[in-house]
Write a protein that binds this DNA or RNA. Structure first.
Lengths: 143, 143
DNA sequence: CTAAGTGCAAAAAATTTGCACCCGG
DNA sequence: CCGGGTGCAAATTTTTTGCACTTAG
């Protein structure tokens, strides 16, 4: 019955174990997780994959969860904690991900520009960096 | 025998119809394309989907093509024309995509910061904006 | 009680792989 | 000619959907 349940209740949605756990797990994770990662971290009994997807879709539509698109086969998800989003660096060799708070990410000017040029109302953005992590660089994994 | 073929030849790879077409189609497209989009734009006879994927993987590893991760089910690809990359705005309702040149995208400071803090050598980044396009806003598609 | 959620099975969709045959250099 | 490329079929992986049963409010 943390703020998770409250947020759900406030939005008029039933509070279920699956939803509480998803929010808890995502909030505890420093990195965005795939649906599979998420399910693995559930204490037993683990929910069905379909349920995890359905809940992720619901939580996303309620604005409690955000999807993250890295260049992978599957999508990842993270808790949408207010406006304080994060940016990430992904290693192109081993896939290692590091996240860091988007401090002083001033893209408001670009967003304003977009509104003028395309008429789009920008509500969110994602910024990811790709490169080579120190370990892979040492090993010479250049691709 | 445009610069496409030359780039491939220079890299020591056989020049085949599939590869030339992929590079041509991607270069002519203002938006990043999915593997399926790409195949559909091939003049007949269309190549097998597996071949398209294999060639996209090859061209990516050679640095001639870049994958783009929007928040969709499938990946998209774009021609990697030197350093002049683009940023994009995606409508959350209808999926419409607008691309615009990344003019004056000064993220070098952030990239330097990343190098210091994590040791990652950043070679690329992607920046996408999400929001509502004018049409969807008018129609009231808020989700 | 009743709308909404869940598991299970099956379907879709995207991507990858094995293998026999074909082609560019 | 030969290593690499291609089509075709089949397998994998991720995500979605239908349906009968259970549960939160």
């Amino acid at each position: 019955m943390g703020r998770h349940s409250e947020a759900l209740r406030r939005l008029g949605r039933p509070v279920t174990r699956g939803r509480e756990e998803i929010l808890r797990i995502l909030e505890e994770s420093p990195l965005p997780l795939s649906s599979r990662d998420l399910r693995e971290r559930f204490p037993d009994p683990k929910p069905d994959a379909a349920t995890v997807y359905r809940n992720l879709a619901l939580l996303s539509s309620l604005g409690l969860v955000r999807t993250v698109a890295l260049h992978e086969r599957s999508r990842r998800y993270e808790a949408a904690e207010g406006e304080n989003h994060r940016h990430r660096v992904v290693c192109r060799s081993c896939g290692r991900i590091e996240a860091f708070p988007a401090r002083k990410c001033d893209l408001s000017r670009v967003e304003e520009d977009i509104r003028r040029r395309f008429g789009f109302t920008v509500t969110d953005h994602s910024l990811e960096f790709f490169g080579d992590c120190p370990e892979c660089r040492r090993k010479g994994n250049k691709g």
